[in-house]
Design a protein around this nucleic acid. Structure first.
Lengths: 242, 242
DNA sequence: TCCGGCCGTTGATCTGAATCAAGGACAAAA
DNA sequence: TTTTGTCCTTGATTCAGATCAACGGCCGGA
């Protein structure tokens, strides 16, 4: 059974209450946010917005996964971010969206109209402080990702990606657990700066080596975590990418 | 003649007064910052800090250029940021440096000890607000850079890089002007996810095509801006990368 | 002025991943 | 059940950029 998000939803029972932009807010501040919030759900595969569109709302992902990407004219596409629950979408001070946003799975967002939200950011320091923290986390993740895109081999990219998936999954500790891979091969390719064929081949190699195994296209298990770590190309004291 | 940065330097006559983290501060707030600031200069080529070092100070670049980079164990290196005057270094809430920092040219920073600065970020909303703006700008730049690293050809990378250099140079309008290229070929390669040989070759190609010309290794002129733009692979309504 | 050490250029060759191409598996629709 | 479309896999071939290698130019120090 899943939660229903509507005007009756209380912030206090929100699943992202302590991780989203409202994390540092007290009850009074939460009330201010609450007054300007509304929920919206997008079907899997639906565009949430295109680069250049007017930025009418700021949103927090409440459930589901959205992608941020940019395309060159000839169709080459690079994903530049994956938005998971509690991640924030939109940037104060800009009037347009800067990247294409798509719902990878069904996505529900908690959103705020632009003007009132920008006013609130000025007036409630706890919101700006939390947004700063989150922006710096994302900046770090983006920089780690730049290392992957610029310098890692296809094999290292795939291994790093799988490692990230299990670290960010709902049961991160359990390496033997079945992990969901919500992206298609093409989406993974756009995330890693590869082609979908190369993604498929490298997954097959890791499978043949006994490092991972698939129950179906979208679910896998780690059979040999040490080997996966090794294949990432990162130092042993590896960093947290997201 | 260059400015001397010492304890007598007044914030009001600081070259980055209106762009750095203090940009939104009023005189009173500036005074608080002023009480905990000091200056430090690093020679060209010197390391400013290594990943994992204790983060003792937060710094604003006052003059010069610094680089942020990460290396894999086998020596492959990816630059993940170029810090120009007014850019900020260090991240509240972390106790270690997360990337290697090097002085590309001689660098002077205005710096603040960690604890008092973190306290100040909590107490002076204008600082957190400005830092948020700057972090979001950097995040955007990092994401644009991810597109370059993941999807652009060597030629497109070089053209995009040159375009960025002239946009961020001190005389951005003047396309006929002589522009400084403060990085070595190897540094450019580490920035673009290429080898130094490929950088050299692509610069030669653009030179032979009459798009750019070099007066010496570190200074060039744009001869054909339209051709350079075209070679970047970006849409005509190109974005601002930094 | 000569020497030694970067730094940069250019050439030859190699190779990892892209591209081109053909099917196969699966799920939803008819 | 068959059809249709999407997603994925696998094979053959190509090619952009890496790698390996040699040398040239410039600058600072002796």
């Amino acid at each position: 059974m899943s939660i229903v998000f509507n005007e009756h939803m209380q912030c206090s029972s929100c699943p992202i209450r302590h991780r989203a932009i409202c994390a540092r807010c007290d009850e009074t501040e939460l009330d201010l946010l609450s007054q300007i919030k509304s929920y919206k759900t997008f079907d899997a595969g639906q565009p949430i917005g295109w680069r250049g569109d007017d930025l009418t709302h700021f949103s927090s992902i409440v459930s589901g996964i959205a992608s941020l990407s940019r395309s060159l004219e000839d169709g080459r596409t690079q994903m530049v971010g994956l938005l998971l629950p509690s991640d924030f979408l939109g940037r104060p001070g800009r009037e347009q969206i800067e990247f294409d946003v798509n719902a990878v799975t069904e996505v529900t967002v908690c959103r705020f109209e632009r003007k009132p939200f920008e006013k609130l950011v000025e007036e409630v320091p706890h919101v700006a402080q939390r947004m700063l923290e989150m922006a710096l986390d994302e900046l770090n993740a983006a920089r780690e990702w730049m290392v992957l895109l610029g310098r890692k081999t296809a094999r290292e990219k795939i291994a790093t990606f799988l490692e990230m998936v299990i670290r960010r999954s709902t049961n991160p500790g359990q390496e033997a657990a079945l992990h969901a891979l919500p992206l298609t091969r093409e989406e993974i390719a756009d995330f890693l700066g590869l082609t979908l064929e190369t993604v498929s081949r490298q997954l097959t190699v890791l499978k043949k080596e006994g490092v991972i195994s698939f129950s179906d296209r979208k679910h896998f298990t780690i059979s040999n975590m040490a080997a996966l770590q090794d294949a990432t190309g990162d130092d042993a004291d590896g960093d947290v990418l997201f």
